[in-house]
């Protein structure tokens, strides 16, 4: 059922190209979830406060509830379903940050995790040696009600350290 104007757009999500006709009023998160079936991107508040819907758009983190799907026409998008395949290949099949979340108890219910991971992946690309305060500021726009954040911060700092050691000249 359609209630208004539509447009045909093409999105590349996790390396796969999708062409869909979508209503111009749909935000990107709804198109990812409802049209493409990529339900790993979570919607908490739908007004830009909780950060759960954060995805990477052309490598930059953004809240997918705060942009229209038509604005992402032609963009390359990475969602939680695709992050194990970026910055890789990774032994064990998970992104190092995902592994660290498991090791440091960076998640419990998992609702905020897709947004936390995409946000922190961008932070570690921008700033490979963040301080604890910089990590806390980076996730200040992502709400977690389970972990008290400590496990998430520990996971991010450990990942940064491991990545620095892995790329340091011997």
């Amino acid at each position: 059922m359609s209630w208004g104007e539509s447009r045909t757009i093409t999105l590349t999500v996790n390396g796969t190209s999708y062409t869909r006709e979508v209503e111009v009023r749909f935000h990107l998160a709804d198109v990812l979830r409802h049209e493409l079936g990529l339900t790993g991107t979570h919607l908490g508040c739908e007004h830009g406060v909780c950060g759960a819907c954060t995805v990477l758009i052309n490598g930059r983190s953004a809240r997918s509830c705060l942009m229209l799907a038509v604005q992402a026409d032609g963009a390359e998008i990475t969602t939680i379903e695709g992050i194990a395949d970026i910055d890789g290949p990774h032994a064990g099949g998970l992104h190092p940050l995902q592994e660290a979340f498991r090791e440091f108890h960076g998640l419990q219910c998992g609702f905020c995790t897709p947004g936390m991971l995409t946000t922190l992946i961008e932070l570690l690309r921008d700033n490979p040696a963040p301080t604890e305060e910089e990590v806390r500021i980076a996730i200040s726009g992502n709400l977690c009600r389970c972990t008290g954040y400590q496990g998430i911060v520990d996971a991010a700092l450990a990942t940064a350290k491991n990545l620095r050691e892995a790329t340091a000249p011997a």
Binding site: V24, R25, F26
Partner: peptide, 8 residues
């Protein structure tokens, strides 16, 4: 919560 219909 969804935006209302509009012309884009």
């Amino acid at each position: 919560m969804k935006p209302p219909a509009f012309s884009y």
